[in-house]
Computed example of a mutant assay.
Amino acid sequence: MDLDAYIATHLGQWRRLEDLVGRRRLTGAESDELLDLYQRVSTHLSVVRSASPDPSLVSYLSALLARARHTSTGTRTTTRHEVWSFFTSTFPASLYRTRRWWLATTLGSVVLAFVVGAWAVRHPEVFTEQMTRAEIDAYVGTDFENYYSEYPHHEFATLVWTNNAWVAAQCIALGVLGLPVLWILAQNVVNVGIAGALMVSHDRGSLFFGLILPHGLLELTAVFVAAAVGLRLFWSWIEPGPRTRLESFAAEGRTAAAIALGLVVVLFVSGGIEGFVTPSGLPTWARILIGVVAEALFFAYVFVVGRRAAREGVTGDVADFEQPATAPVAS
């Protein structure tokens, strides 16, 4: 193909598309013309790539088409109403819809933690094989308690927030593989069980639960939710139901993304409790009460707000107009 002749033939259309893209407002006729030129220039780019792939021309046409696509589709901004709708409808409905998964995950994890703790109490060699006597005495005597006051409150709250958000993000992101989620979950549960066993076996159980429960109730619930969402994501392509595996995975992936965004806020709250309440001078009963209230509010949020939203038809997925077209299937 004679590239120079091809450029000379179509340069006018490219310049016209550039002109339309650069305008702040377009009339109806100009919008129609822009779409027509977009299709034509897309064809031109395809021809150039296949017949005479000049790098500079390909780059120019690609950039021009990207600008035209942006102009034709416009931009979408998130409004306060959409944020409000997310936290009063989409997020709680997603949690309610997946409740069986994360309630089962929570129950199984708690049982595993107590089983591991009970076993470790009866087999103290699990501690002495990993720690010296001096290290055990330091951990039980001061280190466990001092961990919560080692940093300024705001720095510690930020530290635990980002750490817990990272664990939750791993559970969801690795959900497609399934087994890594179980490994991450088991690691965290076993560590909690062994730490509790070490404290209980040295008559420091009240200190352990007094420091863990204020923030741990909400924090661990959020991690269990993330793990359950990851496992549900894995199951969506193992058992897709009437949809194709791709459609099933895409739908659950969009819901998982919504839950991930909401959990950022939940973990922010638990991080604030861990940073400011857990190491505070409040009586133990008051600190635990704050944790119990935070957990109760979360469950009320799911089973009151979430149930109402679910009954109104909210699934946690994006709006219908934002979803890709799917082929009908036989029921």
Rank of each mutant, 00 (worst) to 15 (best):
I7K: 07
I7S: 09
R24A: 13
R25Y: 13
L26H: 00
L26N: 00
S31L: 14
L34V: 10
Y38P: 02
Q39D: 14
V41E: 03
H44R: 14
V48S: 03
A51F: 12
P55F: 08
L61D: 01
E82A: 15
V83R: 10
W84S: 14
T88F: 12
T88D: 11
F91H: 02
F91A: 03
L95M: 07
R97V: 04
T105Y: 02
T106A: 11
W119Q: 09
P124T: 02
P124S: 07
F127R: 04
T132Y: 07
R133G: 15
V140A: 03
A157K: 04
T158W: 12
V160M: 06
W161Y: 13
V176Y: 05
V176K: 02
P180K: 03
L185V: 09
L185P: 02
A186I: 13
I194P: 05
G196T: 06
G205S: 05
L207R: 05
E219S: 00
E219P: 03
V225M: 05
V229F: 09
L231N: 05
L233R: 01
L233V: 05
W235D: 14
L246S: 13
A256S: 07
A260K: 03
A260T: 03
V265T: 06
A286H: 02
I288W: 03
I288K: 02
G291M: 07
V292G: 00
A296R: 00
V314P: 00
D317Q: 12
F321C: 11
F321Q: 13
A325C: 12
A330E: 15
A330Y: 11
S331F: 11
S331C: 07
